[in-house]
Nucleic acid binder design. Structure first.
Lengths: 206, 206
DNA sequence: CCACTGCATGAACGATCATTCATTAGCGCA
DNA sequence: TGCGCTAATGAATGATCGTTCATGCAGTGG
């Protein structure tokens, strides 16, 4: 077979490895890691089952690769969007916008990273838990800063942080592109809800 | 084998059918439907694999039975806890308390009902989606009532309803019994967050 | 005391699973 | 033109999957 044809349709420049990542990502997100077979992934890529093992050592390694790659990219993007210092209100609003928009842009990655922790074996699980903790820590830091300055009505930082993240992440379960509201409009609704839940009435703009 | 011994340990009065339900529930919640085999379920119950088919026609039928049973019980319990009429603020607070406490009391049922929709075949899926919609509708009704009376700061009822349910349901992902806060204390924190997110400052008591 | 019923058994079914591997094809580079 | 490497093949591995079924036992009602 011509090598240049072993490519997912519509993505003529993708390497096989990238095509495997893309195929596995959407299949895992759609039906869950245990329900997806290596044969299905290979079929979507356009190669035979054995070919995947030229790029990934095992199905588990493929999952870990996807999850870890996503979480690292998420942290990098967050730190680029939400500057370390500054007004806690603005940082929080920015955190919410970032979280909602990133999650709507990459719903498959997000879904896998949050749902397939249970499919991980010990090594990968420990690494992923740490990355997840680091992300949540970013929000806790913002809440604590606002608490110190007295601009947020905080009852309990850890509980509220987990509650807010759950609320924001949940947007992926119901939002569909092309619906009544734009992604940005949805993000602003969430900003308002989050701000109000912390006793902040007016929403800071960008 | 003595029939009276074919029983899950610690549950001496349970019928085999109930034991299968319990075993399947916790295994599905822990590792996901596709990752659990009928052999594992039977092993936990203390019977052989074939025995399950004396009580359920298939693995899929077992899943549908669990999910549908949970959702119907949830709706009945909700309607018993949150009266149809009355003050929207009190009804909402009661909805939040109910949702949080029920979810903390039955985390496995809840988790399966929300996560295993994708494992359902067409028939069961349609029925479960309708039950889920009915539950969410209860919250939308409360928000609409409050909007009509002008006691809630509503931007968008459907979006806020989904956001609130996601926030509340997320409690199961982090709360563990025996931790710093009691279930009731956590529920009250959520009540406060929800109320604030709707512009209601003081929390109505029960 | 017998017949009936309900339920557990345990072996077997074909299908599918993740993974391995010897083989080979095609590419870049000399 | 030919060498060497990367990667795709396709068959085979043993394990495990959901499900079926003939068999037999235990408890119940007549």
């Amino acid at each position: 077979m011509l090598k240049s044809e072993a490519i997912i349709s519509g993505q003529p420049k993708a390497s096989t490895k990238q095509a495997i990542e893309r195929a596995a990502l959407s299949l895992f997100a759609e039906r869950g890691y245990p329900a997806v077979s290596m044969r299905e992934i290979a079929e979507r890529v356009g190669i035979r089952q054995g070919g995947i093992y030229n790029h990934f050592g095992s199905k588990q390694a493929l999952l870990v690769h996807l999850m870890e790659g996503h979480m690292r990219a998420l942290l990098v993007a967050l730190d680029a969007s939400v500057p370390k210092g500054g007004n806690p209100r603005e940082r929080l609003a920015q955190f919410v916008r970032f979280h909602v928009l990133y999650h709507l842009a990459q719903p498959d990655d997000v879904f896998i990273a949050y749902m397939e922790l249970r499919s991980l074996e010990a090594d990968g699980l420990a690494r992923l838990k740490e990355l997840r903790r680091a992300y949540e820590e970013r929000l806790r830091r913002i809440l604590e800063a606002g608490q110190r300055l007295g601009v947020f009505a905080i009852t309990d930082v850890p509980v509220q942080a987990m509650g807010l993240i759950a609320m924001l992440t949940g947007v992926t379960t119901w939002y569909r592109d092309g619906s009544r509201l734009s992604r940005e409009a949805v993000a602003e609704i969430y900003v308002t809800m989050v701000m109000r839940s912390l006793g902040v009435e007016e929403t800071p703009t960008m």
